[in-house]
Design a protein around this nucleic acid. Structure first.
Lengths: 235, 235
DNA sequence: TATCCTATTTTTAGCAAGCTAAAACTTTTG
DNA sequence: CAAAAGTTTTAGCTTGCTAAAAATAGGATA
C-alpha cells in the first residue's frame, strides 16, 4: 500500500492512470469503460476495482463504478508524473514525434527507477508540461493548473493560445501536427457552422498564418486560453 | 523463432546474455552456474535450455551443459547491443556512475523499441564500446574485436592502456573508479609480488600519476593493451 | 576394471498470478 | 415491470516458477 510506485504491477499503474484520466474528463468510471481502454475483460477490471478499494485508493460502489480517494489521486499523480516526464523526454531529447511518445512512454514507465526519473527531471529543466501540454505533477503530487476552454467554445474573432491537445490517438495527433496545432501556438476561430458544424480557424502568428477547416470532434480536444489584444501587440 | 528480440520474455534474453558472457570467458555453461546468476532454480534453467535447443539457439547435451550455435550467438548479440548502448547512454547522457548503469540497463533493455535503440545509437554517435570498455555489437551482430591481456600478465615496467574493465559488481567498480582505473586510462605495472601477490601500479599520464596497490583478483578483470614508447612521446 | 558414491541435472507434481468465458446477478430503460 | 444493458461471480485456463524425487556423469574406491 505504501510501496513505491515503481513496484506496482504494470496493469495496476495503467489502470490507475485510466481512472484518473476519465475522472479528470468528468466521465463516470465504469468497469466496461476501463476494460475497453486497458484491453482486458470486464472480469479483470472488477477484480482490480476490488483490490484498489481494499488498498484505499478508490471508493467502489458495486455495479456503479469507482471514484478516486485522495490517496488514490496521489498514487495516480506519481504514475502520471513518470509517464509525462518520459513523453517530454522522448520528444525533446530523442526527437520522437508527439504521436509516438505515448506508446513508448507506456512501456518505459514501468521499469524506470526513482533515480532515472530525477535525472530526467533535471535534464529537462524541471518541466511543467508534456508535449501535448498536459501538466506534469511535481514530485509531491501537486499538479500545475492551467485552465482553458475547448476550442469550439471560443467566441468568433477571439484570438487564443493553445494550452493542451489532449488526445492520445496517434492518427489524430499526426493530423493535428500537420495543421501545426501544437501547444503554445496561436489560433483564432474565424467562423463556426451552427449545430456543431465544423470550424474555420486561423493558425499561427501574423506573418505566417494559415486557415483550416476542423471538425468539432477534433476541436473539442484542443484546449485554449483567450489572449488580450494587448498581449498580441507585444509580439 | 524469428521474432524480434524486443518480444522475448525478460528471462529469455537474460539467460541468453548469461550464456554468452560465460562462454566468452571460456567457462563451461552449466545449469547450476546459470541458475545462480539468474537467481532462479536449476529446474527453470533446464527448461530454458530445452527451449533454447528447440529454437536452435544452443546445442544441449543433457547433463553436460549448453553451447551457443551461430544463430544463438546472433540472438545474444542483439540482446547485448541493447544492453551496452543503454549503459553508455545512461553514463554519458544522464550522468550515471559506471557502477549503476548495469542494473538500470537490465530493466530498460526489455522494453525499448527498435526505434528507441536507433535513436540512442545516433545520439551517441554510433559508439563501439560501453562505459566498461565492453564492445557494442553492430546492428548486424558484428562485434568490434579489441584483444588485450589481463593486467597481471603485463611485464614489469611496460606501459599500457586500459581497454576493458569487465566486472559487473557495483562495489568493485566503485572501488576501481576511485583509483581512476577506467578504460582509456594509462597504467603501468611497477612490480608484482610473486605467487599471485598484489600489484604495484602507476595510474595516469605524466604530470599527474598516482601509485596504488591492487589485488590480482581485481587486476584480472582489467584488460589492457601495451603501448609503444613511441606512442607515449606523441602525447 | 568394475562398482559405488557424490555432485549435478532432469523430471515430476503442483503452486500462484493473472487472465478469460460464461453464468449469475443488478441496474437501467422502454 | 419486463427486457436490455451492464457488472460481478464462478470455474477454469496458461505461464512461469519451485521443491522434491528420480536419473545421470564421472571420479573415487576396491
Amino acid at each position: 500500500m505504501e510501496e513505491p510506485i515503481q513496484d506496482l504491477a504494470p496493469r495496476i499503474s495503467d489502470c490507475l492512470k485510466v481512472i484518473y484520466d476519465m475522472q479528470e474528463r468528468g466521465q463516470k468510471v465504469s468497469t466496461s469503460a476501463v476494460s475497453e481502454r486497458l484491453g482486458v475483460s470486464d472480469a479483470t477490471v472488477t477484480m482490480l476495482f476490488k483490490d484498489f478499494a481494499a488498498a484505499g485508493w478508490v471508493e467502489h460502489a458495486p455495479y456503479r463504478g469507482v471514484r478516486l480517494t485522495p490517496l488514490g489521486e496521489r498514487k495516480a499523480m506519481e504514475v502520471i508524473r513518470h509517464h509525462r516526464l518520459l513523453e517530454l523526454y522522448l520528444a525533446r531529447e530523442l526527437g520522437y514525434s508527439w504521436d509516438k511518445v505515448h506508446d513508448e512512454a507506456d512501456k518505459l514507465e514501468h521499469v524506470i527507477s526513482e533515480e532515472f526519473e530525477d535525472k530526467l527531471d533535471a535534464l529537462l529543466g524541471y518541466p511543467t508540461a508534456d508535449p501535448h501540454g498536459d501538466p506534469i505533477p511535481s514530485k509531491d503530487g501537486v499538479i500545475p493548473l492551467r485552465t482553458g476552454i475547448p476550442l469550439p467554445q471560443l467566441s468568433q474573432g477571439q484570438k487564443a493560445l493553445i494550452l493542451r491537445v489532449s488526445d492520445q490517438d496517434p492518427e489524430k495527433l499526426r493530423y493535428l501536427g500537420q495543421l501545426s496545432l501544437y501547444p503554445e501556438t496561436h489560433v483564432e476561430v474565424i467562423e463556426q457552422a451552427p449545430f456543431g458544424g465544423p470550424l474555420r480557424i486561423r493558425v499561427g502568428e501574423k506573418p505566417r498564418q494559415i486557415e483550416h477547416m476542423l471538425g468539432v470532434e477534433l476541436a473539442e480536444h484542443i484546449i485554449v486560453t483567450p489572449i488580450e489584444a494587448g498581449e498580441m501587440a507585444n509580439k
